[in-house]
Design a protein around this nucleic acid. Structure first.
Lengths: 223, 223
DNA sequence: GAGTCACGTGACCACTTAGTCATATTATAG
DNA sequence: CTATAATATGACTAAGTGGTCACGTGACTC
């Protein structure tokens, strides 16, 4: 658990530590991320870090919670409760994409945590957040079936996984390839996010939704 | 480049080294995989490793080539040149799944290399094999459009990414969750692969294909 | 001013890493 | 059997890791 000492820190110092730590954890796998590196770049002593957090895992966990909270805020804000399944999903995909482009480093920390190949140390975080995301998708699908917009007769859990990976991985990687950059360049160069216009994002999300709609829509609905 | 000394090794010794190394690289990120660990478990001296390979990257590259070759063999074997786009894709998905279940460790080494969040050292391997896979998917889509089974009017590159992540990630993760194991347990316990019956695999692949077909099929085709 | 307590510090510890190299062992050839 | 070349070896190096701890520093209280 994060220690009170950290929360009582002056705003700017706290933020500087967070920024540096997020950058470190975004750029390398957990075990390779270096505390020595973080403290030196943040301009604090090694020992101070251990006044703020129990250990490396504790710091990581704190950043992860931040990332989840921030992403949830994006998604919740864009949600229109009135829409049908596909409209809601499109909103969620759009919001999730916006989050990843607005906060690429934070988004990357989250993506690392979800990585199935993740390191054993992180399995607890991983399975927890992954499970939550999957439940959310599955729940949406079931609701869509109840409202009649989504066809029946398939394994909803399997479909939740497909939706998750389609949206979670495919989209971001397409954006990167389209701009001809890799993840590291994107993370370290904040300017690159400007390369994605609002229209391009909306168009891409719409194409994805066309694909998903075709795969899931009940007969008699849609254009 | 792998040194001739390694290739001249007695079959059993060579295989033992490969097995141990594959297991090591499958279980942790590249930078965390330990040569000291590999040599001790393979029962050889540290120095010997450097008679066989230039360095750590060289060993990794060798294993990666092996994995690609093996997976390609699976896919090529299952390919029936006569089938239409969806039949070919289903074959490829099935073969790819079989490969991952038959050789979970090798499959995991490959998956790590494709990981977009992969470490900077591996970008060369990553972008190369990823690009190749994406070209293959895009090419198939275009051929499908030419034969009339796949609808037109979408960004084929984006769709290749969606197909790739749907098939590459979603499927495997669903299998794991369905068996209630995580990737590490699956890798270290070869028995677990038996939990997936041939029928269950075929059914799951078919459901995925239903989803993909709905999203891509041209009007007037299909059931 | 004295005493107390939270916070800051960096030298230090035990450990691990990739990689080297002088030396020992083995195989080959004359 | 001897000489030569190929291979095997593991102690060693330099660098880096997460984490600790005895000691400073500064602020607040009485």
């Amino acid at each position: 658990m994060v220690k009170p000492t950290f929360l009582n820190l002056p705003e700017d110092k706290r933020q500087r530590i967070i920024d540096v730590a997020v950058e470190e954890f975004a750029g390398k796998p957990y075990s390779k991320a270096s505390l020595s590196n973080i403290v030196s770049r943040a301009g604090i002593a090694k020992g101070s870090m251990y006044q703020y957090f129990e250990d490396k895992k504790d710091l990581y966990s704190y950043l992860l919670d931040m990332a989840v909270e921030e992403k949830m805020a994006y998604i919740k804000e864009g949600m229109e409760p009135a829409g049908d399944f596909f409209a809601s999903l499109e909103q969620a995909v759009y919001a999730s994409t916006r989050f990843s482009l607005d906060h690429p480093k934070l988004g990357q920390v989250l993506a690392n945590a979800m990585d199935p190949m993740g390191e054993e140390v992180l399995q607890e975080f991983f399975s927890q957040s992954k499970q939550t995301a999957m439940d959310w998708f599955e729940n949406m699908i079931v609701l869509g079936q109840q409202e009649g917009t989504v066809r029946r007769g398939f394994n909803t859990r399997l479909m939740a996984h497909l939706l998750y990976s389609t949206i979670g991985f495919g989209l971001m990687e397409y954006f990167l390839e389209a701009q001809n950059v890799n993840m590291h360049e994107f993370i370290t160069n904040p300017q690159l996010a400007k390369g994605f216009t609002e229209d391009a994002i909306r168009d891409t999300v719409r194409e994805i939704m066309d694909f998903v709609r075709g795969g899931l829509e009940a007969k008699g609905w849609g254009k």
